[in-house]
Simulated assay, not measured.
Amino acid sequence: MPPKTTKAATGKTPAKGATGKTPAKGAAKPAATKAPVKKEEPKKEEAKPAKRTMEPKEVTLKAIANVVNCIGEVGEEYKASGRCLLIVDHNGNVGTFLKYRDVNMIQATLAVDFQPEPLRKALIGSLKHGKPNILDVSDTDQEKILDVAQGKYEEIYPGCWQDMLDLSISQDENKWGKLYRANDDEEQYKNPYDYRAAEFKFVVLTNVDPPASALHDFFTVIVN
């Protein structure tokens, strides 16, 4: 009699490479190999070129109005510098000379003027009407007054002082928009279509020699 075939026999040839063993239930599959993820390095901010100290220019009293309005050789240099103007007037005549011209002038020695709210309104007026905004710091402690002034402008909004010094406040509506308050008159302050911000100038006037740091930040003229 022919031999009996067992139930385990299939009569098939195992596939090449097959082990013939059934993988154990629940056996872990080999983990897939992932390519290493490259970490992105933080972008480095481009360093701004350092400001250089500019030697003061000497001008006459008659010429100072032209300088403020960027007219003439020194006026053109002032405009090209991209800085705010610092006028040193040892004779004390420039303040009177400019006061009767189309400017907004604040005197640091007058407590009623030298406060954040008058400073804010004068700044808005200068941006709106294209007038020079002149801060007269004559007869004050020159080592401290600009720091005091910066503190008062920073009360208007943080960064206001630097925005004036680099003139970005006259180029960015979002920056001069920070000057507004809810109770400001709509027509007087908030109409954006009649602004002459591109003509804005911030000028510091003094009758004594300023600190060396001011020569680093401003375009300085000495009136003789």
Rank of each mutant, 00 (worst) to 15 (best):
D102Q: 00
V103C: 03
K128W: 01
R52H: 12
P56N: 11
R83P: 01
G151I: 09
A149Q: 01
N174Q: 15
I106E: 04
F97T: 06
E173W: 04
V88Y: 00
V68F: 03
P30T: 12
A65C: 03
E41M: 15
G125I: 07
V59S: 08
G159C: 10
M105T: 02
P23W: 09
F219T: 07
M54A: 09
P42G: 08
W176L: 15
T53D: 04
R196G: 02
A32P: 00
A31F: 10
K44H: 03
Q162A: 09
A9T: 07
K51I: 14
A63T: 13
E143G: 05
G26T: 10
D136H: 05
I222F: 02
K57G: 02
A31M: 13
L146H: 07
A50N: 09
P56H: 09
G20F: 12
E73V: 05
N104I: 01
K51E: 15
T33W: 02
T109A: 08
F202E: 01
G72K: 07
N183E: 12
D166L: 08
A111M: 13
I87K: 00
I222E: 11
V88P: 00
C70Q: 02
A35V: 14
P118S: 05
P23G: 06
S138N: 10
K152G: 00
E154A: 12
S126W: 00
A32I: 07
G159K: 02
G92L: 02
F114S: 08
K131R: 05
N174R: 14
T10A: 07
M105L: 15
N69C: 01
S168V: 14
Y193H: 13
A31C: 06
V67P: 01
E155N: 02
Y189G: 00
E76P: 01
F202H: 11
P132E: 08
G95V: 02
L127A: 07
D136M: 06
E45S: 11
E58H: 14
F219R: 05
T96H: 07
P118T: 08
L205S: 05
D209E: 15
A198E: 14
G177A: 12
K29R: 14
A28C: 04
H90Q: 06
T96M: 03
K34F: 10
S81F: 05
N183R: 12
I145F: 05
A9E: 15
V37Q: 13
Q162D: 08
I134T: 04
L110R: 13
N133H: 10
G20A: 10
I134Y: 03
N183A: 11
S170V: 06
R196S: 10
G177P: 11
K7Q: 06
I124W: 06
P56Q: 08
E154N: 14
N69A: 04
Q171T: 15
A50F: 01
R120W: 11
P132R: 03
L110V: 14
A31E: 15
Y189D: 01
E143T: 02
E46Q: 10
Y189R: 13
P56T: 12
V68C: 06
N183C: 03
K4E: 04
N104A: 00
K99Q: 11
A47P: 05
E76K: 12
E55A: 15
I64C: 09
Y157V: 12
T206R: 04
D136N: 15
N183W: 13
I169T: 08
E154S: 05
T10I: 03
A198G: 07
Q162I: 00
I64N: 05
K79I: 02
L167W: 09
T140M: 14
P30C: 07
A9F: 13
N93T: 04
